[in-house]
Structures are given as structure tokens and as C-alpha cells.
Amino acid sequence: MGFKLLSKLLVYLTASIMAIASPLAFSVDSSGEYPTVSEIPVGEVRLYQIADGVWSHIATQSFDGAVYPSNGLIVRDGDELLLIDTAWGAKNTAALLAEIEKQIGLPVTRAVSTHFHDDRVGGVDVLRAAGVATYASPSTRRLAEVEGNEIPTHSLEGLSSSGDAVRFGPVELFYPGAAHSTDNLIVYVPSASVLYGGCAIYELSRTSAGNVADADLAEWPTSIERIQQHYPEAQFVIPGHGLPGGLDLLKHTTNVVKAHTNRSVVE
């Protein structure tokens, strides 16, 4: 069995187990497998329904001669939608809004960016022009300005110390501490036991640490421990890039980060 097929099978099995364990909360999309990078042309966006009122959005972007996937989250909030992270750029984010209108038909009224990198804030200006209120932590807003990236308009308070959590509509926002970046936030959907790890969490097929220019490698494993301790009931975990899975993604990420750190020390 090929690795790609095995990865998709694991996603399907995880979703099936969740649907059985929580039949009222989960209505997993039966329309197909989780979209992969090879299936999404740059400039297009796919939506994948995880649970009743919960979707991931998947886009792709060219970077350094390669094409990478990027995940975000959409959560229903009454007759409105909360968006977590842009679709990595203005063109993708405009396509995301169009796809949401086509498939869901509810307005996106608020959006949260989970850290300051372009795959999370690139497209904020498109959201703002569409009347979406954009939010991020003060740290993310400051770092985005320093980096020359787009800056969300509103500040999220109460997320300055490791372990801080605040309720934001249908989700809980959690600051686990520094990891992929010093400002990275985690998003949890309690009604569906869905954990969105953003770039602080890796997919299972990833074996290298990737972009760690703004990471705190020493603190990252401790931050992941905080996530595990705060959300032990999480059933569906979405990484910032690639295929979702279960809580095993947290341990896998820790292993990859520690291996990278150990290699760096040896070198």
C-alpha cells in the first residue's frame, strides 16, 4: 500500500471513529477524501466538511520552486461564519470567499490569524475590503508590521502568557507558548472536538522541520505538551499544512522538532 493511500485511509478511519463516538456532533463529509496538494491548482481553494458547521479550507501556493498546501478553518456561528487564517495570499483568499459563498452561503463576518507569517495573514486586506472584521493577538499584529505583512485590524486580548485561553464565538483560542513562531495560536472547536494546530503542528508525513527561522526550538516541545494537557479530548487535529489526523500529530511534531534540534547540535 502506497504512503499517500495509507495517509488518506488514516484520515478516513479517524473521521469514521469520530462519527461513531459522537453521532450528534459529527456529520463528516462523505463526498470524498481530504484534498491534497496535487489536486488543488494554485489560485483555487477546496472546502472539506469535518463536522456539522465545521470545515477546513485548503489552498496551495508556490514557494521556492515548489507547491505547498495550506489549511485553515471555518466555523459556523449562528447565521454567520468565523474564518481562521487566510488562504495564503490575496488571490487565494478572494477564491476562498467565493467558494464559501458557493458552498455554504453564509457571510464571513470575523477572521482570526493564528500567527504573523504570510500563509496566515496574506489576504487580510481582501477580507477587510469584503467587510470582514480581522483579528490577531497584539504580538501577531506587531510582528506582521515588522515583517511588512498585512496586519489584522483588531487585537485579541488575554493571550499574552503561555497557557492563556479565551473564548471567541464558537471557538476557544489558546496560546501554548512559542513553537513554530513566538505568537502562534491554537484554535479548538469544543462542539466538535476539532483542534486546529496551525503551523505549530505537523502532518504525519512530514519528517523535516522546514521553516524554523522564527521558531523557538527549545520551547516548542513544552508548548505541545500544554496543548495535549489542555485538549486531551480532541479527536480531529488539523495541521497548518497537509493531512489531518488525531492527537498523534502532536507527538510526531515533537519528535521531528527534537530530531532537528539534535542534528543542529551535532553539526
Rank of each mutant, 00 (worst) to 15 (best):
M1A: 07
M1P: 05
M1H: 08
G2S: 05
G2N: 14
F3V: 11
K4L: 05
L5I: 15
L5V: 11
L5F: 13
S7Q: 00
K8H: 06
K8V: 06
L9Y: 06
V11H: 14
V11P: 06
Y12L: 13
Y12I: 01
T14Y: 03
A15T: 02
I20G: 06
I20S: 11
A21E: 10
A21F: 10
A21P: 08
A21N: 04
A21W: 12
A21Q: 05
P23C: 11
L24G: 05
F26G: 07
S27T: 05
S27A: 09
S27P: 09
S27K: 03
V28M: 08
V28W: 03
V28N: 02
S30I: 07
S31E: 10
Y34M: 02
V37W: 12
V37D: 10
V37Y: 07
S38Q: 11
S38T: 05
S38K: 10
E39F: 01
E39D: 14
I40H: 03
I40A: 11
P41H: 06
P41S: 10
P41I: 13
P41L: 09
G43W: 06
E44Q: 04
V45Q: 06
V45R: 11
V45N: 09
R46F: 08
L47C: 04
L47E: 08
Q49Y: 02
A51H: 11
A51M: 02
A51P: 04
A51N: 15
D52W: 05
D52V: 07
V54I: 04
W55P: 01
W55D: 09
S56A: 04
H57S: 04
H57K: 02
A59M: 11
Q61W: 09
Q61G: 04
Q61A: 09
D64I: 06
D64E: 09
A66Y: 03
A66S: 04
Y68V: 05
P69A: 05
N71K: 02
N71D: 07
N71T: 06
N71A: 06
G72I: 01
G72Q: 07
L73D: 03
L73Y: 01
I74K: 01
I74Q: 03
V75T: 06
R76I: 07
D77C: 03
G78P: 11
D79L: 12
D79N: 08
E80D: 13
L81N: 03
L82N: 06
L82D: 11
D85M: 00
D85Y: 00
D85C: 00
T86W: 00
T86I: 04
T86E: 00
T86R: 00
W88R: 00
W88F: 11
G89S: 11
K91R: 12
N92L: 10
N92V: 10
T93L: 00
T93C: 06
A94E: 13
A94H: 14
A94V: 12
A95M: 14
A95E: 14
A95W: 10
A95N: 06
L97I: 00
L97H: 00
A98I: 00
E99Y: 15
I100P: 00
I100G: 05
E101G: 11
E101N: 06
K102Y: 14
K102Q: 12
Q103V: 07
I104N: 01
G105A: 06
L106I: 14
L106R: 10
L106V: 12
L106A: 06
P107G: 09
P107H: 00
V108M: 05
V108T: 12
T109G: 12
T109Q: 02
R110L: 14
A111P: 00
A111M: 07
V112N: 00
V112K: 00
S113L: 07
F116N: 01
F116M: 15
H117Y: 00
H117P: 00
H117W: 00
D118N: 13
D119P: 00
R120D: 13
R120A: 02
V124P: 04
D125K: 11
D125T: 15
D125I: 13
D125R: 09
V126C: 05
V126E: 15
L127A: 13
L127Y: 15
R128D: 03
R128S: 12
R128W: 13
A129T: 04
A129D: 15
A130Q: 01
G131E: 14
V132R: 02
V132D: 04
A133Y: 00
A133F: 08
A133K: 14
A133G: 12
T134C: 15
Y135F: 11
Y135L: 15
Y135K: 03
Y135V: 12
S137A: 11
P138M: 15
T140A: 04
R141V: 01
R141H: 14
R142N: 12
R142S: 05
L143Y: 03
A144H: 02
A144P: 14
E145G: 10
E145W: 11
E145S: 15
V146S: 08
E147G: 05
G148C: 10
N149L: 14
E150A: 06
I151A: 04
I151D: 15
P152Y: 15
T153Q: 03
S155G: 01
S155M: 01
E157K: 02
G158V: 10
S160L: 12
S160K: 11
S160G: 12
S160D: 04
S161W: 12
S162K: 05
G163S: 04
G163K: 07
A165P: 11
V166S: 02
V166Q: 07
V166C: 13
V166E: 09
F168V: 09
P170C: 13
V171W: 01
V171C: 01
E172F: 13
E172H: 09
L173C: 09
L173Y: 00
Y175N: 04
Y175F: 03
G177E: 01
G177H: 00
A178G: 10
A178H: 14
A179D: 00
A179T: 02
S181E: 04
S181G: 12
S181V: 11
S181Q: 06
D183P: 03
D183Y: 15
N184I: 12
N184G: 12
I186S: 11
V187S: 13
Y188G: 12
Y188I: 07
Y188W: 12
Y188K: 14
V189H: 02
V189F: 13
S191E: 13
A192I: 14
S193A: 11
V194M: 02
V194Q: 09
V194T: 03
L195S: 06
L195C: 08
L195D: 02
Y196R: 02
G197N: 02
G197W: 01
G197R: 01
G197F: 14
G197S: 10
G197C: 14
C199M: 01
C199D: 10
A200D: 14
I201T: 03
Y202C: 08
Y202G: 11
E203A: 12
E203M: 15
S205A: 12
S205F: 05
S205Q: 14
T207V: 10
T207S: 10
T207Q: 14
S208P: 08
A209K: 04
A209M: 13
A209Y: 03
G210E: 05
G210V: 05
G210Q: 13
N211Q: 07
N211G: 09
V212T: 13
V212R: 09
A213E: 11
A213V: 11
D214L: 09
D214N: 04
D214W: 13
A215Y: 14
A215S: 08
A215D: 12
A215T: 13
L217E: 06
A218M: 14
A218E: 09
W220Y: 11
P221M: 11
P221D: 13
T222Q: 13
S223D: 08
I224H: 04
E225F: 15
E225I: 00
I227F: 15
Q228L: 11
Q229L: 14
Q229M: 11
H230K: 03
H230L: 12
H230N: 09
E233D: 09
Q235P: 07
Q235G: 10
F236R: 05
V237G: 05
V237E: 04
I238S: 11
I238V: 08
P239E: 07
H241W: 03
H241C: 01
G242K: 04
L243C: 14
L243A: 08
P244R: 12
P244F: 12
P244D: 06
G245M: 15
G245Q: 07
G246Q: 02
G246T: 07
G246Y: 06
L247E: 14
D248P: 15
L249D: 03
L249I: 01
L250E: 12
K251Y: 14
H252D: 09
H252G: 07
H252W: 06
T253S: 13
T254D: 09
N255L: 05
V256I: 13
V256N: 06
V256Y: 13
V257D: 13
V257R: 12
V257H: 14
K258V: 12
K258Y: 00
A259E: 06
A259Y: 10
H260R: 07
T261C: 11
T261V: 13
T261M: 08
T261A: 06
N262P: 11
S264H: 15
V265I: 04
V266K: 14
V266P: 02
E267H: 14
